[in-house]
């Protein structure tokens, strides 16, 4: 187990985490896009409050994982958890924060009656694909398909 420092806390997302999330995204992608995150945070806050998680270290948001529990989409009648976006501050990686947020969001999905959790991944993005594999994601009979228009 990586060392878990005492001042790290995983908790549900709230509207005051926006700046922290915007900042992590900017650190990862180099793009400042507060309006997009305002939309996403609003979406998840009303859609499934308590599901999305953040990791806080020394009172600062250093990671986030956004998702919600859905049913009735793509012919999937049973509720399932969906993880859409996540990110860990590059300075705080490798400390199990991604896994701990994942455990917390899954606990919430389970309480909502979900029996599976789903996500989409760009297989060529090795770090993200590697992380998802490490936390237990495997191939699904459902496949994301696309064609160019």
């Amino acid at each position: 187990m990586p060392e878990v420092t005492a001042d790290v806390r995983i908790r549900a997302l709230d509207e005051l985490d926006l700046n922290g999330i915007v900042r992590i995204d900017e650190k990862i992608t180099g793009i400042y896009r507060p309006d997009i995150w305002e939309q996403r945070v609003m979406f998840y806050t009303r859609r499934d409050p308590g599901a999305s998680q953040v990791a806080e270290s020394g009172g600062k948001v250093v990671g986030f994982m956004l998702g919600d529990c859905r049913a009735g989409e793509f012919g999937l009648e049973e509720p399932s958890g969906w993880i859409e976006r996540f990110g860990i501050d590059p300075d705080h990686r490798g400390k199990d924060l991604g896994r701990r947020m994942f455990d917390a969001i899954c606990a919430h999905f389970k309480a909502e009656g979900a029996t599976s959790v789903r996500t989409l991944v760009d297989r060529t993005d090795e770090p993200v694909a590697g992380f998802l594999k490490a936390i237990g994601f495997g191939e699904s009979p459902l496949a994301a398909l696309e064609r160019k228009l």
Binding site: E15, L18, P34, E38, T45, R46, P49
Partner: peptide, 15 residues
Amino acid sequence: REEAFHLAAGVIPMR
């Protein structure tokens, strides 16, 4: 859980 939306409906327009 509903309150979380109310707070966002205050803070996001202010932002």
